[in-house]
């Protein structure tokens, strides 16, 4: 009988502890959102740090984002890396790590994370677009074209992808296709300066 009561007591204690920890986490997350909206990123980080658990994916992900906003890029990268380790198929963590890495200028690492995303989801439009724009800025128009064409096929009337693909084609000397793309951009945004400037280079 004593044994039974003892087990009930232990279970209750554990239940209270778990729910207590859960409510502490909820409270900390809630407070961090309030502080984030008030642009107090440092305190938002410190609130979550008080309930930090190394094996908690959500905490690592959120701390990665807040550390990035707080300007602590090295910690942001570390938190996002932990999140990726905990959830190896996470696309959001890989998209997130790109922010601090871009501030640090570590673009080759960003490309690697984006390529990992495309292994998980080859049609991920945002990643295809971003890879396309990185390669465009590096002057590797052939590579940029591959990713941007994929986005334009998935979203044929998306302004940003159409415009970037049009400039890519222009740089590749594919003037006919570039002209058609610039004209499609003008259907989306009539009188768009960039598209008009591109068309003037073809004429």
């Amino acid at each position: 009988m004593v044994k039974k009561w003892f087990l009930i007591l232990v279970s209750l204690t554990l239940f209270v502890e778990v729910t207590g920890q859960q409510s502490r986490l909820q409270e900390a997350f809630s407070q961090s959102y309030k502080l984030e909206s008030a642009a107090d990123y440092k305190n938002a980080v410190s609130v979550l740090s008080q309930v930090y658990e190394e094996n908690n994916y959500y905490l690592n992900l959120r701390l990665g984002w807040l550390s990035y906003l707080a300007g602590d890029q090295t910690h942001a990268v570390a938190y996002y890396k932990k999140a990726i380790k905990l959830m190896p198929l996470s696309i959001e963590a890989r998209l997130g790590i790109a922010y601090p890495l871009s501030v640090l200028g570590n673009w080759d690492q960003i490309i690697n994370y984006y390529l990992e995303i495309l292994k998980i989801d080859p049609n991920h439009s945002l990643t295809n677009y971003r890879l396309g724009s990185i390669y465009y800025n590096r002057g590797k128009y052939d590579k940029a074209r591959v990713y941007l064409e994929k986005v334009v096929n998935l979203y044929p009337f998306d302004y940003d992808s159409l415009l970037l693909l049009a400039w890519t084609k222009l740089n590749l000397g594919q003037y006919g296709e570039a002209r058609a793309l610039f004209q499609t951009v003008l259907l989306n945004r009539p009188n768009d300066e960039s598209a008009l400037s591109g068309l003037s280079k073809i004429k």
């Binding site: 640090l104 200028g105 570590n106 673009w107 080759d108 690492q109 590096r138």
Partner: peptide, 12 residues
């Protein structure tokens, strides 16, 4: 140091 920098961004 430039070598280390290029490991992070080989196109700069």
């Amino acid at each position: 140091y430039f070598k280390k920098a290029l490991i992070n961004n080989d196109a700069d």
